[in-house]
Design a protein around this nucleic acid. Structure first.
Length: 550
DNA sequence: TTGCAGTCAATATC
DNA sequence: GATATTGACTGCAA
């Protein structure tokens, strides 16, 4: 009754008493997703933040409800508001239990029934997919996602990978039966999870599913069963097809089964996949360095020069920007987690994403790419892009989507083409920052170019699109010729944003948030970054090119 | 219209 | 055979 009244006739804030405001605060928290922090427990994270947050808020309101909060009192009697403490916390708790409880793998679960005959992986993730939560009314994944508190995507993927590998379970099986995604998507997701706050509702879905799956004590067995059944079905089909020479047969389990055998869809409708030649990629990367957001005209030119379809060029830029962004996210996370790894619960800390981490916290991609051979140049690059460094910094904010959402610059997400340029320290651009030796061939490692630091905006600005195109053009022909592809851009960006993404992400429990143990490497990088910043500043003030060597 | 997130699915690589 | 990479596509938002 109180709720009804409150929802239908809310009183203006100013008219509310401290107590009367409480329900609204709760509602706001709930709307913000802060309420329910315990729904999907993030390892190590105590449930109940809700109350804490409320409590703190209350504190600020100087009210005594705090006690009521933590003290599940028999609110019934209390004023309309009091009811919330209990009810909310309880509801949250129940939900939490729900998710924590063993629950069948999403769509499979049900009585060990085979993985959805139709299991059209694609459809699966559709909104309605109910999460069969044992004993409770099924909640749709969307509901769970909406109610879910911030999850440690990195930690979740690490755990999932561990479980999968430990039990010899494949990504395909896991993806199709648990996540409703294809193998490629799963691989990508597990290898490059984006921080929770960077994910859209849809993007969070797989993580919630993974979390739910991880919470299911029988997850492995179920998946194993699935595997067995699949195998059985496969063998069966195989036999039947062999004997009946009946190649195809609508797979009952909706899994890819020998596609090779099914001749039916011979329809030449499938257009061959475009595979860009290394030189083409190189050229595109160069162009990207020049101009991360090329104009239609530039794209046109690039397409012409590279003899590609404009759509291909467009797609390439989209994909490249997007992927680089993700790389950066990861670097950041890794950089952050690195220090806390030890503390982190699971062994995953070390193993997970081992690869990248191994490459050195963060700048990995680059370093790895460059390889040991990385000469001074490489080093420079690496350093420059360094996670903590430009790369990170940049990405964090400058980069195309850098700090988007969470951080002030909202539009950042869609850094208009100009954005970048503009953002880029326009100023210093002038004196074309001595082009950072673009490890022409090597740098490739996507991550390197550091999207964030759409390089040489200056150049861009000045040279305009031509620069880009020309750069691109040039490369194909002579990839090696680094064509003074000005790349220095990143540095300036970094300078402007010394801030660590970590803070940006503000991943509470996420790896990134933990005490970033400053290991020697990090310190060194930090020093490097400072040096870069310093030089940039000097350069900016001097307006004269300087020799870049970090 | 443009950019992006999320995916798929073909293909590469391990 | 499993996993990683990547060009293309869809849907959404600004």
């Amino acid at each position: 009754g109180s709720v009804s009244d409150m929802l239908s006739r809310p009183k203006p804030w100013s008219k509310l008493t401290q107590k009367g405001r409480e329900p609204f605060i709760r509602m706001q928290l709930w709307l913000n997703g802060e309420l329910g922090q315990g729904v999907l427990p993030v390892q190590g994270q105590p449930q109940g933040p809700v109350l804490h947050s409320v409590t703190s808020l209350q504190d600020s309101l100087q009210q005594g409800c705090v006690s009521s909060e933590s003290t599940p009192k028999t609110s019934a009697s209390c004023s309309p508001a009091p009811e919330s403490p209990m009810s909310s916390s309880e509801s949250v708790k129940s939900l939490t239990e729900l998710v924590q409880q063993p629950c069948p793998p999403i769509e499979t679960g049900k009585d060990g029934k085979p993985p959805e005959p139709s299991d059209p992986p694609t459809l699966d993730s559709q909104p309605t997919t109910p999460l069969p939560l044992s004993g409770h009314s099924a909640l749709s994944i969307q509901e769970l996602v909406a109610m879910s508190p911030e999850l440690d995507t990195y930690g979740i993927t690490k755990r999932v990978k561990e479980v999968l590998t430990d039990n010899n379970l494949g990504q395909r099986l896991f993806g199709e039966t648990i996540l409703g995604l294809t193998q490629g998507s799963v691989s990508d997701l597990l290898a490059r999870p984006k921080p929770w706050h960077k994910l859209s509702l849809k993007g969070r879905e797989p993580f919630v599913r993974m979390q739910v799956w991880l919470n299911d004590p029988n997850n492995v067995e179920k998946l194993m069963d699935m595997k067995r059944m699949e195998k059985k079905a496969y063998m069966k089909r195989r036999h039947s097809s062999v004997s009946d020479s009946q190649p195809c047969e609508p797979p009952s389990v909706g899994i890819d089964y020998s596609q090779g055998a099914s001749p039916q869809p011979q329809h030449q409708l499938k257009k061959p996949r475009v595979v860009l030649a290394p030189e083409e990629k190189e050229a595109l990367k160069r162009a990207y360095q020049q101009k991360p957001y090329p104009s239609p005209k530039t794209i046109e030119e690039l397409a012409t020069q590279l003899n590609l379809k404009t759509s291909t060029v467009i797609n390439w830029f989209h994909n490249y920007r997007s992927r680089i962004r993700r790389e950066l996210f990861i670097e950041e996370i890794q950089a952050g987690s690195q220090g806390q790894a030890a503390a982190s619960d699971s062994p995953s800390a070390r193993s997970g994403r081992a690869a990248p981490s191994s490459e050195g916290d963060s700048c990995d991609g680059v370093e790895a790419a460059e390889g040991p051979g990385a000469t001074a140049t490489a080093t420079a690059t690496a350093d420059a892009e360094e996670p903590g460094g430009p790369a990170a910094a940049t990405k964090s904010q400058g980069g195309p989507g850098a700090a988007e959402r969470e951080e002030g610059p909202p539009p950042a997400g869609t850094p208009g083409p100009d954005d970048t340029g503009a953002a880029e320290d326009a100023g210093r651009a002038e004196p074309p920052p001595p082009p950072l030796p673009l490890e022409s061939p090597a740098e490739r490692l996507a991550p390197v170019p550091n999207p964030a630091a759409p390089v040489a905006p200056a150049a861009t600005a000045a040279a305009g699109e031509d620069a880009a195109t020309s750069a691109a053009a040039g490369s194909p022909a002579s990839p090696g010729t680094s064509t003074g592809t000005s790349t220095g851009g990143s540095a300036p960006a970094a300078a402007r944003r010394p801030r660590s993404l970590q803070s940006l992400f503000g991943l509470p429990e996420a790896a990134g948030a933990r005490d970033p143990h400053d290991n020697p490497v990090r310190k060194k990088k930090a020093a490097n970054l400072n040096s870069i910043i310093h030089r940039l500043e000097k350069a900016a003030s001097r307006e004269e090119p300087i020799e870049w060597e970090f």
